[in-house]
């Protein structure tokens, strides 16, 4: 697809995302969109290292959870402003990511070994966050105080009692802004030397080394960027729900969500995680509303269909939805621009 076609595609997507909620007055649908964008950002965090760099992490919950906990604890224990805490959260997660990356890449762990070590770290943090009660408040989690003063809404980064617009759309436009920033960074990365070298590492690490690329440094850079993006998800989550506990923070569900979106959407593409997230959430919601309700609202029915669709996508669309879109585009444009 040509650069111009891509840019127009992005304009349409971003305009839709910017304006759509204004026409939705149901809190439930705005919530749905928020969670879709949240997973799209979470997925982009994974995609930088996994999709572009070929290093498949199975423990991005480690990064998400660390960010969420730092954000929550700095406010809970020290009363630090959330706007300041978030920078500590991002820095802390980058430090944790860099440590895991340093250990794994220093000793040349690749493929499933890297996936296992990231999973192991996430599980270790899960156990630690449960057992280090004096630091993390243990298994009961951290509950932040709810701010009920509309004048303090922005200062406390809590929009539940804010003015009419902010109350309804505050968190939506927060996650939308995070998405804009992280996707812009990914877009820029894709067109930079760093991006080219990262993809070279994914495609063939020996060849990359032979061509003068410091593959260790490139992978470390990728995990740091990945960490910063995933940390922003942790910050967002804490501010929206004002609660974090070990299972939510470090449990495997966030790790899985982070990798599903880009794999379904299209690995190593900017738009992939967003497409994947829209697809996953759309299908999930649609099946819940149709089949789930037809069968008497039994929980879990949607998950069965969801799983089936996942398998079909993985079997027949190896390049994800992006591959499908590109194939359709090629056909429509008569193969003029491949």
């Amino acid at each position: 697809m040509s650069e111009r076609a891509r840019l127009s595609g992005w304009t349409i997507i971003l305009l839709t995302l910017a304006l759509l909620p204004l026409y939705l007055h149901s809190a439930r649908w705005i919530d749905f969109l928020e969670m879709t964008l949240f997973v799209a950002v979470l997925g982009q965090g994974w995609n930088i290292l996994g999709g572009y760099g070929g290093q498949y992490s199975f423990g991005n919950a480690l990064l998400f959870g660390t960010g969420a906990y730092i954000q929550a604890l700095l406010q809970f224990k020290f009363g630090i402003s959330p706007w300041i805490a978030m920078w500590f959260a991002i820095a802390g997660v980058v430090a944790v990511g860099a440590m895991v990356g340093f250990l794994s890449f220093r000793y040349g762990l690749r493929g499933s070994y890297f996936a296992l070590i990231t999973l192991a770290f996430a599980e270790a943090f899960l156990v630690l966050s449960r057992s280090l009660k004096s630091i993390t408040e243990g298994g009961s989690g951290v509950q932040l105080a709810l701010n009920q003063d509309p004048a303090q809404a922005i200062a406390t980064f809590q929009f539940n009692f804010a003015g009419p617009f902010l109350k309804e759309y505050g968190f939506y436009y927060t996650i939308f802004t995070i998405l804009l920033v992280t996707y812009a960074i990914t877009w820029w990365m894709e067109r930079s030397r760093f991006g080219a070298q990262l993809v070279a590492v994914r495609e063939n690490e020996d060849a990359a080394l032979a061509l003068g690329i410091n593959t260790f440094k490139v992978k470390l850079g990728a995990i740091c960027l990945s960490s910063a993006i995933t940390a922003s998800c942790g910050v967002y989550y804490v501010q929206k729900f004002l609660f974090i506990e070990p299972g939510i923070a470090f449990g495997p569900s966030k790790s899985v969500e982070a990798l599903f979106a880009p794999i379904i959407g299209g690995l190593g593409t900017v738009v992939g995680p967003l497409l994947g997230s829209v697809f996953i959430h759309g299908v999930g919601e649609a099946t819940k509303m149709t089949i789930g309700q037809a069968l008497g609202g039994r929980p879990g029915v949607d998950l069965i269909l969801f799983g089936t669709i996942l398998i079909l996508v993985l079997a027949f669309l190896p390049r994800g939805l992006v591959g499908l879109v590109e194939a359709v585009w090629k056909r429509l444009s008569g193969g003029r621009d491949a």
């Binding site: 030397r193 080219a196 070298q197 993809v199 495609e203 063939n204 020996d206 060849a207 061509l211 003068g212």
Partner: peptide, 21 residues
């Protein structure tokens, strides 16, 4: 050891990036 999913131009550019940012 080609970078198989990249185009020829992108492959060569990876080498060029060693000297050119």
């Amino acid at each position: 050891k080609p970078f198989a999913s990249l185009t020829v131009r992108e492959n060569i550019a990876v080498g060029a990036h060693t000297r050119i940012a």
